[in-house]
């Protein structure tokens, strides 16, 4: 029960912080960091993934509703939610994960960083790829993906450090 309340608060909190604060921040006029994907990173890793996929989709869709962007955030967030488990298995080099005791806070820092970085890059690439959706804009897509990812990753690490200390 405690988990349900915690995750609901996280969901609503992330949408509001993204919409109210972060969508108003534009570094150099066009870099808008998107750390709402923190949800995908810290949502408990469980064997049953149905609810997690649905929530990730809804989270992206909420952001889309606020920013009139169709379904690009929903598509990108759902995709990284789907690849999270295979990615974790690959990073830990284990075929199975000990689900009840596993949290991402136990990961060594470098693995955690690569986990976050891969998810962020994939998310942003899908997001900007779908938004521009033109092959001749590929350079813009790459540069936007790269620059935005850097700011998103910094914000994600900071918030993870903050959450880790509060535990």
């Amino acid at each position: 029960m405690n988990d349900v309340i915690k995750n609901t608060a996280l969901f609503i909190g992330l949408v509001l912080v993204q919409v109210i604060v972060l969508n108003n921040i534009l570094f150099w006029g066009y870099i808008n960091p998107l750390p709402y994907i923190l949800f995908v990173i810290i949502y408990p890793v469980k064997k049953d993934r149905g609810l997690f996929l649905l929530l990730s989709f809804l989270l992206g869709l909420c952001i889309d509703f606020f920013s009139d962007s169709g379904g690009v955030n929903a598509a990108a967030t759902l995709f990284i939610a789907y690849i999270r488990l295979p990615l974790l298995k690959g990073l830990l080099r284990k075929p199975e994960i000990d689900f009840p005791v596993f949290t991402i806070f136990k990961l060594p820092f470098l693995r955690l960083l690569s986990f976050i970085a891969i998810l962020t890059f994939v998310h942003h690439f899908i997001l900007f790829g779908l938004e521009y959706f033109k092959l001749n804009m590929i350079l813009t897509i790459f540069s936007k993906t790269f620059l935005t990812s850097i700011f998103t990753i910094i914000l994600l690490i900071l918030s993870l450090l903050f959450m880790d200390k509060n535990k």
Binding site: D64, F65, F66, G70, L78, L130
Partner: peptide, 25 residues
Amino acid sequence: LELIALIFTVQSHSYHKSKFVNSAN
């Protein structure tokens, strides 16, 4: 779900007036 998201995306890229995902609610 991905298919639904892509449908919304394609809808937003065309000049429609009846988009489901919009901030005017």
